[in-house]
Design a protein around this nucleic acid. Sequence first.
DNA 1: GCCTTGACATGCG
DNA 2: ACGCATGCCAAGG
Length: 116
Amino acid sequence: MDSAEFHAAVYDTVRLIPAQKVTSYGHIAKLIGMPNHSRHVGQALKFLTSGTTPPVPWHRVVSSSGAISSRGPGTDGARRQGEALEAEGVEVTVTGAGERKVDFSVCGWFPAPGTV
DNA sequence: GCCTTGACATGCG
DNA sequence: ACGCATGCCAAGG
């Protein structure tokens, strides 16, 4: 698979995420046929914020633990993501430190690879 | 062409 | 349950 194809696959998979559902980088990687490329999934996602048409629900993608990645303390990206998820009705668990996490047992979206 | 970086995952202590 | 260490692979310098 080419790098461009990889990006396209990530975009397409993220777009397939239904509303009020969240998935993890690892699962995205599995869905596109690359279980070990979890990191590059996010790497592609950061590109989505640059103005993608149609808009991709990248905020529905979190780490395997259900925690939202930092992406830089200076940026409010993580906070925005948490807010966006809450706005969609996703159960966001806010820890004492203000870190937002999602409950996979409630809003987890994990389709089997190949059925997508 | 080599080295560093990275929105991660998994295993072990 | 939490923190640290290792593995993975591609993109950018």
